Amino acid sequence: MASDGVVVEIGKVTGSVGTTVEIPVYFRGVPSKGIANCDFVFRYDPNVLEIIGIDPGDIIVDPNPTKSFDTAIYPDRKIIVFLFAEDSGTGAYAITKDGVFAKIRATVKSSAPGYITFDEVGGFADNDLVEQKVSFIDGGVNVGNATPTKGATPTNTATPTK
C-alpha cells in the first residue's frame, strides 16, 4: 500500500443473489490541510450489481451534504461517478479525517463476483488547492465463495486525467 498520499479503498462485503448490500468507500491518509475537492470514477458490471443509491459517509460534515457531495450512476456506461467540492468557501466542510467517504447500496443480481474497480481520477486537492497523490484499492461483493480481489494492489495516480 502507498505510504504517502490519500488511499481510496472500496470495501469488500459478502452478499447473495437478491440481497441488498452496503459497500463502503474509505479514505485513508487524509492530509493535515484536509480535502477540499476530489472527483473520480469507479467501474462495475450492472449485470452483477444493480447500484440503487449512494449515501455520504461520516467524513462528509456539510450539514447539507447534497451541496458538497454528488454522485451519478450510469449503468449503460458501467460507471459510478463521485464528486466532492467543499461548499462553505472557508474550508469548514472539508474532509479532515480518515473514514467512510461514501456507502454504495447495491442489489446482487448474479452469482458472479461483484467487482467495483477504479477507472479514472480527475483530481484530489487540499484546502490550499494543492494537488494530492492518490491511490485506489478495488473491492466489491463476495457472492458465495467468490472473492472480488482483482486489482487489490493500489493504483498510483500522480496526475489528473480527463
Rank of each mutant, 00 (worst) to 15 (best):
V13E: 06
A102M: 13
F124A: 00
I104M: 15
G91F: 05
G5K: 11
G29M: 03
I79V: 05
T71I: 05
V17S: 08
F84G: 00
E131G: 06
K12H: 10
Y74I: 00
M1K: 08
N142D: 09
A106K: 05
P56Y: 07
N64F: 05
A146K: 12
V108R: 11
G29P: 12
G114D: 09
R105K: 12
Y26S: 12
I51M: 02
N127L: 02
G99Q: 14
F101I: 10
I23D: 02
S111L: 10
D119I: 05
S111F: 11
N47R: 06
T107R: 13
V130C: 09
G140S: 13
P154C: 12
V41E: 00
I104F: 15
G122L: 00
V100Y: 04
A94H: 02
I79C: 02
F69G: 04
I60Y: 15
V48Y: 03
A112G: 04
D76I: 01
V134Q: 03
I60G: 04
K67V: 09
V61L: 13
P24T: 03
S110V: 11
V48S: 05
D55H: 07
V13N: 07
I54K: 00
T71W: 02
S68I: 14
I52Q: 04
S32Y: 10
S135N: 14
G122K: 00
V6Q: 14
A102W: 12
S111M: 03
P46R: 08
V8T: 14
G99P: 01
Q132S: 05
A152Y: 09
F27T: 11
Y44D: 05
C38V: 02
D58H: 13
S68T: 07
V21G: 05
E22I: 04
K133L: 06
G123A: 10
R43Y: 14
T14L: 09
G123V: 02
P148V: 04
A125H: 00
G18S: 08
I23S: 08
V48E: 03
G18P: 12
F84L: 07
V121G: 13
F118L: 06
I95F: 13
K12F: 15
Y115W: 14
F124L: 02
I80E: 15
S111W: 03
V8L: 03
P31C: 00
P65Y: 12
F42S: 07
D87T: 15
D62W: 14
G122T: 00
L49M: 02
K78S: 11
I23H: 13
F27C: 01
A85Q: 01
S3I: 05
V81P: 02
I60H: 12
G123D: 00
I60D: 07
T147W: 07
I79M: 12
D70N: 15
V134F: 01
D4K: 04
F69S: 07
N142A: 12
Y93P: 01
F27V: 05
T19Y: 10
A94T: 06
V25I: 09
K78T: 04
V141M: 13
I35D: 04
V25D: 01
D128V: 05
V143W: 06
N142G: 08
I23G: 11
I73Q: 08
E9T: 07
D39Y: 01
F69M: 03
G140L: 12
P24W: 09
G18K: 07
V21T: 09
V108Y: 13
K133S: 07
V100P: 06
A94Y: 00
T96M: 04
D126G: 02
I79P: 00
E131L: 01
G57C: 11
T66A: 08
G11Q: 05
T153E: 12
N142E: 09
P65D: 15
L49H: 13
I73V: 07
V141S: 14
A36G: 13
G5T: 05
P65L: 13
P75Q: 05
T155E: 07
E131S: 04
P148M: 12
D119G: 06
T155R: 09
A102Y: 15
Y115S: 07
V108A: 11
A85P: 00
G5P: 05
G122P: 00
G140A: 12
Y26F: 06
N47E: 10
K67C: 06
V61C: 09
I23Y: 07
G122E: 00
E50T: 07
P75V: 05
S88F: 14
V6Y: 01
T159N: 14
I137G: 09
A72K: 00
L129F: 15
E9A: 07
A112Y: 04
S3V: 03
D45K: 13
V13H: 03
G91M: 15
P75G: 05
D119Q: 06
S110F: 07
Y44W: 15
V30K: 08
V30T: 06
S68H: 15
N142F: 07
P63N: 15
T149I: 07
I10Q: 04
D76E: 03
Y74S: 00
K67P: 14
A158F: 09
V30A: 10
Y115N: 06
I59P: 07
E120V: 03
F124T: 00
V8G: 07
D87S: 15
T147E: 13
T155W: 12
F82N: 03
T107G: 12
L129M: 03
P31K: 15
K12I: 12
E22Q: 11
N37W: 00
K78E: 15
G123C: 01
Y44K: 01
A146I: 12
D126K: 01
I137E: 11
N156H: 13
D138Q: 13
F136M: 07
V130Q: 09
C38L: 02
G5N: 07
G140H: 14
D98M: 07
A92V: 07
N145S: 09
D98A: 12
T161F: 12
A102D: 06
F69A: 06
L83T: 00
G57D: 06
G15M: 02
T117V: 08
V17N: 15
V7F: 08
F84H: 02
I51C: 05
T161D: 12
Y26W: 01
A106D: 01
I104H: 05
E22H: 05
T155F: 09
V6R: 08
P75L: 03
I23R: 05
A152Q: 14
N142S: 12
N156D: 09
V17W: 03
K33Y: 01
A146N: 13
I10D: 13
I79N: 01
K133A: 05
V13K: 11
E9R: 08
K150G: 08
G139R: 08
A112M: 02
K109T: 10
D98E: 10
I35F: 03
R28Q: 03
K150D: 07
D45L: 12
P113G: 11
D128Q: 06
G29A: 15
T71H: 04
P154T: 11
S111T: 12
F136Y: 04
K103P: 14
A92F: 08
V143P: 12
I95S: 12
I80F: 04
I137K: 12
